[in-house]
Design a binder for these strands. Structure first.
Lengths: 342, 342
DNA sequence: CAGGGAATGACAGCGGTAGTCATTTTGTAA
DNA sequence: TTACAAAATGACTACCGCTGTCATTCCCTG
């Protein structure tokens, strides 16, 4: 019924020690032996007992995903990507939802890592952007990978998966520019999230490149919420010189802006184009559906896990600088944008 | 650093076996001993190593949550409740997202259970409503708890946590009736989900109780989607004799209906009241925010896990009929409902 | 004070990893 | 070809933290 390391060893005609060596890809295994063992593993569909490994090994075969994100869809996608990669490598995933704002969050993270003897951690915002967490994890020598907003790999950002919000925002803005819009407003998300700043920078860069002077009045501070979008759009639509397009920092803000516009009897997209960011379900649940930018979250998570495994794996040096994968959310054109009427 | 069973045993002055007995609340432990051990456990904040337990025991200390639900918020809430309860009992949670419609889903479920040696399973719709899955699990003698839509406990529904959609719908409908509405339409969800049928039944019962003949034209078949709500409301608003209120089977449908109404220049809630069901984020992301029914999903999940643990626990007989917890989603009045103008 | 059930403990073993040597295989230079 | 070192592999042991089995001790009852 259950396949153990002994079965594999017997079938391959080697000792369990060798099978163990193969499983932990230790260097000193001959190619021929490795093939035999690999074949036996495949034939028996052997999967090492994670409990036994965790118990016996000084190192662990469980990674953790600690999160605090109001966007459940994001979390679910992340989990999916992590889970798939874990399964592929014979790891287990420990999920730990928590409150990033609690006073002793750093201690809590450390407790989770130590109690569950985690091999490593995948961190998403806001945790990935908290330097005190990174420091604490380094202090207890636990590997971790951060998923953060950023466009340019750098040695400082080692062990990071980058989301290039800048370029994505640049592209979205170009989409609006190509539709003939020049009076484009920007509804910001929370200042604390670096994603908001990155997106704003990309937006401004696109304008500048076309020789358009960004109107500072069109940049409205706010937060990642529906309400904020409602308020921001109301503010913009009350102006004498109105924008013809709005770049909302995420889909919720965009949905709020959409509502505000509708209340003011502004036709979307005929009189006003609106774009969001994230491709959250909200973006499909509005009317018209939102033009937005799509992040392949599962893939990003899978990459992050791969990066982590390459580190936790015994062969690789801890300090080796990895190349950093960079993901660029893609433009997704739907019905909330149209050529500028003016 | 790490607290093991040995530390507890030493502090309590007993053998590790006795500590083990306490941890698994086996019956034959003297009160005095139990207290000593319990105190030691508390003092050291001992938490048993799940890996070691899984390895040593014939039974397992991991339960599974297999899901396929488009509503990420629901899944996240469920996970939260399960996780908390697992932690409390020293169990681990294995999450397994999958596709309920895949051809060999039954085999997949069994594989997961057997490969990860799960102690039990928590099933939510659609899995909890698939008889072939229940049968298969019974055949391999794995405990499971189902969370299903239903109002009356019965011996057949042993090991179930019931969501009383009927009563909740009854209450929501009463809310509308109390506001003076009598021409109330009902937008159905997918037929395959028993929740839709239960909610419709509750709706009709409330009308009948007030001596109101439900207008069959006002019951519109559909599915749990925004589009369905848009279409359903459009259909209703095109009628010569329009309803003054709409009961949407969930928040997405309600959001769609809201949009449809707005397009037809129908004021909400002045001219038309709309209620949803679920208290999903959508219900707060619309304008006006939706009156809806709230399900305490985390609590429900926690209860389901408790029920499961009571079964998997050695002391209890497998066949013992448990009382079935029944949850009634609560009415949550927001701004999408108002007194009938007519 | 014996008998017997209740309470407790000693010990092996779950399925792996890791370390130590011993042994076999291999590659290579004389 | 032979010799010999280096590389690859195996045999064996200890152990991770806990549970199952069974033997032992305790304590109550008649």
């Amino acid at each position: 019924m259950k396949v153990t390391i002994n079965d594999v060893a017997e079938l391959a005609g080697v000792s369990i020690k060798t099978v163990s060596r193969v499983m932990n890809n230790e260097p000193s295994v001959k190619k021929a032996t490795l093939d035999k063992v690999t074949a036996a593993i495949a034939q028996l569909n052997y999967q090492p007992n994670a409990a036994a490994r965790n118990l016996a090994s000084t190192r662990s075969y469980t990674i953790g995903y600690i999160y605090d994100n109001p966007n459940a869809y994001y979390v679910i996608d992340m989990q999916k990507g992590l889970l798939d990669t874990c399964r592929k490598h014979g790891y287990e995933l420990l999920i730990h939802p928590t409150n990033a704002k609690s006073a002793n969050i750093v201690q809590e993270v450390i407790d989770v890592v130590q109690h569950s003897r985690l091999a490593g951690l995948v961190l998403t915002p806001p945790f990935s952007e908290m330097p005190e967490i990174a420091e604490a994890l380094e202090r207890i020598e636990v590997d971790f990978v951060r998923i953060i907003s950023g466009s340019t790999p750098s040695p400082k950002l080692t062990n990071c998966v980058l989301i290039d919000d800048f370029t994505a925002a640049f592209k979205i803005t170009n989409h609006l520019l190509e539709l003939g819009h020049t009076d484009i407003a920007f509804l910001c998300g929370d200042e604390e999230h670096s994603s908001s700043g990155e997106r704003l920078a990309g937006f401004q860069a696109a304008l500048t490149k076309r020789g358009i002077q960004a109107n500072p009045k069109f940049v409205v501070p706010g937060s990642y919420s529906f309400e904020s979008g409602v308020k921001g759009a109301k503010h913009l639509l009350a102006m004498a010189h109105k924008p013809t397009a709005i770049f909302a920092c995420n889909d919720e803000i965009a949905a709020g802006a959409l509502f505000s516009a509708r209340l003011s009897h502004v036709e979307i997209p005929e009189q006003l184009s609106i774009v969001g960011f994230e491709n959250s379900p909200f973006s499909r649940q509005t009317w018209p559906p939102l033009t937005t930018a799509n992040q392949p979250n599962s893939t990003i998570a899978a990459q992050a896990a791969e990066l982590l495994f390459r580190h936790t794996r015994p062969g690789s040096a801890r300090s080796a600088v990895e190349q950093q994968p960079v993901f660029i959310p893609e433009l997704l054109v739907r019905e909330s944008t149209a050529p500028c009427a003016r």
